Every structure is written in C-alpha cells, then in structure tokens.
Amino acid sequence: MSIIQTSHLCHRFSDGTLGLDDVTLTFSEGEFTVIAGANGSGKTTFLRHLNGLLFPESGTVTVCGKSVEKDPSAARQMVGLVFQDADSQIVGETVYDDTAFGPENLALDRQQINQRVDQALAAVELRGLENRRPHHLSGGQKRRLAIAGVLAMAPRVMLMDEPFSNLDFPATCRVIRQIIDLHRTGSTIIVTTHDLEKVIAHAQRLVVMANGRVVEDGVPAQVVGGIERYGIRPPCSVKLGRGIQPWVN
C-alpha cells in the first residue's frame, strides 16, 4: 500500500533556480528507500515537500491520499523529518524538554508525554540523560536526540536528511543501527545521502537524483553499478566486484 505519492512535482526557488523538475514517485508503507545524489541534486528540497516545509510551484504531494498542501499539520504528524543539522532541530533546554516538545504540541496529557519521551530516549540510547543540556551532548548524541524528538511524535514515516554528516565512526554505527531498528519495527524510512557506503546494504530501493530530476529508481544492486556518472561514489565493495556489503553488522 502506498503511503506517499508525488505527481509531477516542480519547485523553483526565489532566485529562479529550478530545484525540482517533474518528480513523480510513490513510496510504499514499510519500505526503506535511499535517495542519493550529488550536492544540489534536489534531495533535501524533495524531502521538505513530503511534510509541507516547502510547497510546490506545480504538482502534488499526498500522504495517505490527503494533500500535504491542504493540510500540512496532518502531514507533519505522519511524516517526521530529521534535519542534516541537528542543532537547528533542538529547541528544548534539556534532553527531556526537547523530546517532549512535539508531544506537548499535540496536546497529549502528561502521562502520555512522559511515556513517549521515555520510549523515544530508550530507543536512541539516551535514557538517563533527561536533565542534560543539549549543547553539552556530543555530535552523535545530538543527532540521536533529534531522532528521538521525531520518534516521540509517533510518525508513520521517518525522513532523514544526510544523517551521517559530521559523525565519527562510533556515532555513525549507532545511527545506522537506529535506522535499521526503526525499519524492522515497521516504519517507512527515506534517507538522503551522497555517501552510499554506510546504508545502501540495508535499503530495499535506491532513487538517484540529478539536477532536480529522478534519473534512476530501482533495486540497489541494479542501480548502483553506474552511479558514478551522477557524481556519486559507489561503495568500495561494488568497485572491488564484491557486490553490496553491509558497512556494519
């Protein structure tokens, strides 16, 4: 069953630059998709249309058959977005406050809020840091806090924009495992990246964007072979002729 559909989506920025050019894609519920592309390919712009942070010049976006443009609030409850810059997403004075921000805005009662915060922090291995100030966290912890804030909203779809950016190896491994766990529990996952090495082995679908358009879409093993022509580095295992191999087990 499809959960998100875009039809002939076009977006032009205020300076006249074309950000998206006739993008038509359907995402099935429970699917794990990686969207790859060089910088400026339109990946982030596309994600921001899926929960109404941007609206198209033409074309449509629907979530569960409902127009995102007509009801962006409903879309944002169903589709959570973790930004590339975790600091820009953190708004609370403590880890607890930040994770509770979304549920509080849903007007849930305090017991429900506490339960969601506890579950979200446990999922990202930050339980016990509820009273810590976010600016005292490491880069990897901030990224996981941003994920927790989205998880606490209980969305059906998780969008993650370059989730491994500026993370060291241990932090990257934790985020990868978090993404895998979310998919195993039934979440629809859409991850954008220009670095396929870390996550492609776990994805069911690979969409490639260039100049605001979809240029490839299919099973990762069938798409990844010619990906260099779009300015994307293929996984080392593919270059060595070993096929797609997991970066972490």
Rank of each mutant, 00 (worst) to 15 (best):
T99W: 01
N105L: 01
L121A: 07
R116D: 00
G128M: 02
S138I: 09
Q77I: 05
V79G: 05
V117Q: 06
V124W: 03
V124E: 05
T99F: 10
L108W: 09
H135D: 13
G102E: 00
L129Y: 13
M78H: 13
E93N: 13
R76C: 00
G102K: 00
V82H: 08
P103L: 01
G128T: 09
E130Q: 13
Q115E: 14
A120V: 08
E130K: 04
F101N: 08
G102V: 12
V124T: 05
Q112S: 12
A107H: 11
L137D: 09
L137M: 08
D85V: 10
V79I: 03
V79M: 09
G92W: 06
L137Y: 10
D98T: 02
V95L: 06
E93F: 12
N105Y: 03
F83V: 05
I90E: 03
S138L: 07
G102R: 04
A100V: 10
D97S: 06
R132T: 14
R76A: 00
D87M: 12
E93I: 06
N114D: 13
V79L: 00
A86S: 15
R133P: 10
Q84E: 13
L106R: 01
V82I: 15
Q115H: 11
V82P: 02
M78T: 07
Q119F: 08
L121D: 03
D98L: 00
Q77A: 11
Y96A: 09
Q111W: 10
R116I: 03
L106H: 00
V117N: 06
G139Q: 06
Q111A: 13
Q77T: 12
G140P: 05
R76M: 04
H135A: 10
Q77S: 11
A107I: 07
A123F: 14
L126G: 03
A123L: 07
A86C: 03
A122Q: 15
D109A: 02
D97M: 08
D118V: 04
Y96T: 12
Q84V: 11
N105V: 00
N131T: 15
L137Q: 07
L106D: 01
E125P: 06
A100C: 02
R127E: 15
E130I: 09
G128E: 02
L106P: 08
H135E: 13
L106C: 08
G128I: 14
L137A: 11
A120R: 00
A100S: 07
L129S: 13
G140E: 02
